[in-house]
């Protein structure tokens, strides 16, 4: 991935997260503790602030540095979760330009790290319900339009789910009927990555 693309990704994800801050917070107020928008906004603003330091590195270490920034700056569980995702993706990154197969491997490593960190898996009404199907689509050779569709469908599919992980799980059955905030932010970030790749 060219440095310019990484630079564009930092800007685009920060802009997208700042714009979605209130929406993410509203989703989180319904079934969580109402801090997801604020926490994500703080984390991605911190990445933007660290941009020169991050962009001075090759892709792998750059992703690891961005992940560490999220871990240290977010303040909620989404920090270690998204931070672990990026750090594991960075560790799995190839030396040069990643191709589709290596991107799928990187996301696969990221998904495993999120599962481990969150002690969770598919079907618990979390960000994994978006990340896993998108990773599978990427590995299967889906084009960008298809990946967008998978991300969108997967996020919507969390609405009827009953949460078994995270703060929403305290609500039990009452968590059904709401879009999961982590699934929403994962969809947003993946869509933004697609925007940047399409240019």
């Amino acid at each position: 991935m060219a440095n310019e693309q990484l630079s564009a990704l930092i800007d685009a994800t920060n802009t997208a997260v700042q714009e979605a801050k209130d929406d993410l917070t509203k989703l989180d107020q319904a079934i969580g503790d109402g801090d997801h928008g604020l926490n994500m906004a703080r984390g991605f603003a911190a990445i933007e602030q660290d941009r020169d330091k991050i962009l001075a590195k090759p892709l792998g270490p750059a992703l690891q540095a961005a992940g560490m920034t999220l871990v240290m700056k977010v303040g909620g569980a989404s920090g270690p979760l998204y931070g672990s995702l990026l750090m594991a993706m960075g560790k799995a990154a190839p030396e040069g330009e990643p191709d589709r197969a290596s991107l799928a491997d990187m996301l696969g490593a990221g998904v495993e790290a999120v599962k481990k960190r969150g002690k969770s898996d598919r079907g618990a009404k979390t960000m994994l319900d978006v990340l896993i199907p998108v990773q599978e689509a990427l590995a299967d050779g889906a084009d960008i339009a298809k990946i967008r569709q998978v991300a969108d469908d997967a996020a919507e599919a969390t609405i009827p789910m009953v949460a078994t992980k995270g703060r929403a799980s305290y609500l039990g059955e009452r968590s059904a009927g709401h879009l999961d905030p982590g699934a929403a932010s994962s969809r947003l970030l993946l869509q933004t990555v697609c925007d940047v790749i399409e240019g």
Partner: peptide, 12 residues
Amino acid sequence: GDPDGGLGTDVS
């Protein structure tokens, strides 16, 4: 408290 002093926790 989170890094900004609101409700939350802070790894550092």
